[in-house]
């Protein structure tokens, strides 16, 4: 009997596919998310939109907060650590969170290195903007990838850009000759073994979710159309006028992304989405954090 194997980590991420992972900041929000059909919740002190507003250093959520949320729901609970913060990750593993997000939404703790995630039994998800970044994170042991997008903006444009870029890079690799793979791996800063695996599979070797700016059922469906395996919704649910309705509608949109009649039905009567921000006007671009 073996725990914490690569199969067990990536297999767990497979269970999230076709689902929505929702940011929550209280036990009550976690229950709303679970009842709406979320496949997991991300336990946070503040949603990204509020982290952006508050400024200063954003750290791992308080243990009391994460515990409160873990006790409230039966679905998996994720939590974020700062990039490179090995000790925050060890603490969350000891606490028993189901998945750790080594996230650019928090202030990085290390300006050169990410966590060596192979050394942990708990699986990790990391953000990426292109294939090279995704494969570097997988090389470090990430069992799941998500686009970075631009968190807390309610603006889907960056998530679209990152998903398109990853998919475009994958398509490129699948048509490359084997002779070209080493030079290409060097160009994108990724291990050649993983580039070869991408060519063989025609996709990333782990689950790839969309994140960072999804605010409506249509946004969620768009990300699925572009090839996402599922969707993270951060501020988009609990910054909307009617979180429960919005959450239910986004869950339906992720299952029925290729059914326009159903998308129309779930997009009616969802109330007002979160207010959005123009990416050009941001003081902090969280997506630039990560190496």
């Amino acid at each position: 009997m073996e725990k914490g194997t690569w199969t067990v980590k990536t297999g767990f991420a497979d269970m999230f596919k076709g689902g929505v992972i929702m940011d929550v900041t209280t036990a009550e929000q976690a229950k709303i998310a679970e009842e709406a059909g979320a496949v997991a919740v991300m336990a946070l002190e503040r949603v990204p939109a509020d982290i952006r507003k508050a400024g200063g250093v954003a750290r791992m959520a308080s243990i009391a907060k994460i515990k409160e949320i873990m006790q409230a729901v039966s679905i998996p609970v994720m939590a974020k650590v700062r990039i490179g913060h090995i000790a925050e990750a060890r603490i969350l593993e000891a606490l028993g969170v189901d998945f750790i997000d080594e996230s650019e939404v928090l202030t990085p703790a290390d300006d050169r290195f990410h966590i060596n995630k192979h050394e942990f039994k708990v699986p990790f998800v990391c953000g990426a903007r292109d294939l090279g970044e995704a494969l570097r994170r997988i090389a470090e042991g990430a069992a799941m990838i998500r686009t970075k997008g631009e968190a807390g903006t309610g603006n889907v444009v960056e998530a679209v850009k990152h998903m398109r870029r990853v998919m475009d890079d994958i398509r490129k690799v699948t048509t490359m000759l084997d002779d070209e793979l080493v030079a290409y791996a060097k160009e994108i800063g990724a291990p050649v073994e993983l580039v070869r695996e991408v060519k063989r599979l025609g996709r990333l070797p782990v689950v790839n979710f969309a994140a960072g700016g999804v605010a409506t059922p249509a946004d969620a469906a768009l990300m699925m159309i572009l090839g996402a395996d599922g969707v993270f919704v951060g501020s988009g649910i609990f910054k909307s006028k009617d979180p429960s309705k919005m959450a239910r509608a986004i869950v339906m949109a992720v299952t029925y992304w290729n059914d326009p009649e159903m998308l129309l039905k779930v997009s009616e009567d969802i109330g007002e989405p979160m207010p959005g921000l123009e990416v050009e006007e941001l003081e902090v671009r969280m997506q630039e954090r990560g190496w």
Binding site: M1, E2, K3, T7, V8, P76, E93, D98, K121
Partner: peptide, 27 residues
């Protein structure tokens, strides 16, 4: 069996399919 850190794989004897099978248990 517990939360994700307790997830595991194990060789399981399953007679109807002819013996040992690598079974993956996730939460």
């Amino acid at each position: 069996y517990g939360r994700q850190v307790e997830s595991f794989e194990v060789d399981l004897p399953i007679q109807v399919i002819g013996g040992k099978f690598k079974a993956i248990f996730i939460r």
